[in-house]
Design a protein around this nucleic acid. Structure first.
Length: 293
DNA sequence: ATTAATGTTCAGAA
DNA sequence: TTTCTGAACATTAA
């Protein structure tokens, strides 16, 4: 479940590898099916040994190490992957190791409990082709309001489902989609192609606010505790959630509605039926007594 | 003790 | 073309 804020926190957490030289990389043996690591160990080793790490980047939910030959090592954590500099949660789920020199850290690990994630090396030429093949959209923190609207309004799917489409905008996952729509008071079931310009503006603003605030708190560590920072610390944004996993609780914004859980595209959506209106009209801020029942 | 729920992406079906 | 479903996987709660 690492989404943009969690992956950005990983990126920032491993910044100490900037400028380091790669000594070696190796797959770590695990009791279960190996994760996707390409190219295979021997070839990967040849390709990255002695290369220097010149940038630590992120696109959507992926972390990238750019090397001095413009090749890239790409981590895609999917559900339970972590990029770590120290103190792995356990040893059995360590999947891959990089040894480093000429800097302040000597090891970087990829850890993945469920093993759905991957580690890849892509040449300078392969990287843009990879992004094109995946049809990855612009990063949620880079996209302009106009492009955001242009890309998202071209579907009849519910806005909540559209926000999860990484080909339209990259980085939003199930948790933050609910939080974003709650902040801007847009009903999650509204078809994307029917939203007003004003609503698009509000969603774009809320998207930036929620993601940036979640990064400030170093992401959300849910009750399963899987997500950790690069130094194996829990994030803090789970305590700031307004609707996610809070079904049945009184809405913290309007103090009127009860948070609902519905299912859209086989995923949980949480929202407040009182303040997330189905109307396209602009917001009339809830005034005391104006909304009986 | 078996079953359901969890969450991201992709292949394949409707 | 677009949208929907199921599989991949491991762990925990019911």
């Amino acid at each position: 479940m690492p989404e943009l804020p969690e992956v950005e926190t990983m990126r920032r957490g491993i910044l100490p590898v900037l400028g380091c030289r790669i000594v070696d990389v190796c797959d770590l043996p695990t009791a279960w099916k190996p994760i996707t690591i390409t190219p295979a160990a021997a070839e990967m080793r040849q390709l990255v040994r002695r290369r220097r790490i010149v940038a630590v980047e992120r696109l959507g939910k992926r972390v990238l190490l750019r090397l001095d030959d413009d090749g890239r090592i790409v981590f895609e954590p999917r559900m339970t992957g972590l990029v770590l500099l120290a103190d792995p949660p356990d040893v059995p789920h360590l999947r891959w190791e990089m040894r480093l020199a000429e800097g302040s850290v000597s090891r970087l690990w990829y850890w993945d409990r469920r093993g759905l994630g991957s580690v890849r090396w892509l040449s300078a030429e392969e990287w843009p082709a990879y992004v094109a093949a995946k049809k990855l959209g612009p990063d949620a923190l880079d996209i302009s309001s106009d492009e955001f609207r242009d890309r998202l309004r071209q579907t009849r799917r519910p806005i909540k489902v559209a926000l999860l489409d990484q080909q339209r905008v990259a980085g939003i996952g199930n948790l933050y989609a609910s939080e974003i729509l709650h902040l801007c008071q847009v009903h999650p079931q509204l078809p994307a192609h029917r939203l007003s310009r004003e609503q698009w503006e509000r969603i774009h603003t809320a998207m930036r606010e929620v993601l940036l605030e979640a990064i400030r708190y170093e992401g959300s560590t849910l009750s399963d505790g899987t997500y950790r920072t690069a130094l194996n610390q829990a994030g803090g944004y789970q305590n700031q959630h307004r609707v996610y996993d809070l079904a049945g609780e009184l809405c913290r914004s309007c103090r009127h509605g009860v948070v609902q859980r519905i299912v859209q595209a086989q995923r949980s959506t949480f929202f407040c039926p009182q303040c997330q209106t189905r109307s396209r009209k602009s917001l009339h801020r809830a005034t005391p007594g104006s909304t009986p029942k």
